[in-house]
Amino acid sequence: MILFRYLTREVLLTMSAVAGILMLVIMGSRFIRYFASAAEGDFPVTILGSLMFYHLPGFLELILPLAFFLGILLAYGQLYMNSEITVMVACGMSPTRLLRVTLLPASIVAVMVGLCSLWLTPAGALLNEATIEEQQSRLDVSVLAPGRF
């Protein structure tokens, strides 16, 4: 039980660090693209935060499997480098049991990715398009001012 928690914590901490770094890179790129569109006048700067938030599940859908894979590689690589896996095998932990220990965090990540891809990403895309269309319709009307020709 202690070994299970230790391995799970190592994998999930490494995965979250990798996911955080990848999320910063991807969100930064998307933010620059949206900021350029806002500078051109396509939509106001005030909705940038909500547009980024609506794209977040789509980014997570792509980043989480990659981050989990890299988390497993980095965490188990560190365990092998420190000879901790050798000690675990010497104490009777088989590679099959090690695989079963890894399957719980893998199933958690799979559920999160499934939730993002089946429900959150389509809902975010709909809200994103609705927000952009609403702001574009407001911009068309806001150009007209009373008393001006």
Rank of each mutant, 00 (worst) to 15 (best):
L74T: 08
Y6W: 11
L56F: 15
W119Y: 13
L66G: 11
F4R: 11
A106C: 12
M88C: 07
M81Q: 11
E134P: 02
Y80D: 14
L60N: 01
L139T: 07
I132A: 02
S83Q: 12
S137Q: 14
A38M: 12
P44R: 10
W119I: 12
L103R: 07
I47F: 08
T121G: 02
P57R: 06
S117Q: 13
F69N: 05
G28K: 05
L144C: 06
L98V: 04
G49T: 14
S117A: 13
E61W: 09
T46I: 11
V11M: 07
L51I: 03
Y80K: 11
G58D: 03
S94T: 15
P65D: 08
T96I: 09
S137A: 14
S117E: 05
E134H: 11
V18Q: 00
L120H: 03
P44V: 10
L56R: 02
F35N: 12
M52I: 15
L144H: 09
E10F: 05
M27T: 14
L51D: 00
L73N: 07
A17W: 08
A145T: 08
M81F: 12
S107W: 05
I108G: 01
S117L: 06
Y80M: 10
I108T: 04
G41L: 04
T102E: 06
T102K: 03
V143A: 11
G147M: 08
L7V: 15
A125M: 09
G92S: 05
L99S: 09
F149P: 03
Y76K: 10
L51H: 00
N128T: 04
V18E: 00
L103S: 13
A36E: 14
P122I: 05
I2L: 14
E40K: 11
V141S: 09
F53H: 10
S94E: 10
Q78R: 15
L79K: 02
T102R: 08
L120E: 03
L139M: 10
P65Y: 12
L127M: 09
S137R: 14
S83H: 09
L51E: 00
A110K: 01
E84Q: 09
H55L: 14
L24P: 03
V18L: 06
I63H: 03
L103V: 11
E129F: 09
I63E: 01
E10M: 13
L48W: 06
A17K: 04
I32T: 10
R5Q: 09
V25Y: 11
V111L: 15
V113H: 05
G28E: 05
S29R: 12
L62F: 13
M112A: 15
L60Q: 04
S117T: 07
A106H: 02
L139R: 13
T121F: 01
G114L: 14
T14K: 04
S50H: 10
L120P: 02
F68D: 00
L51A: 01
G58N: 04
M1N: 14
G114R: 07
A39I: 07
F149D: 12
L64T: 00
A130K: 10
G20C: 08
S83F: 08
A19M: 12
G71Y: 00
M1S: 15
N128L: 10
E61S: 14
L7S: 05
A17V: 08
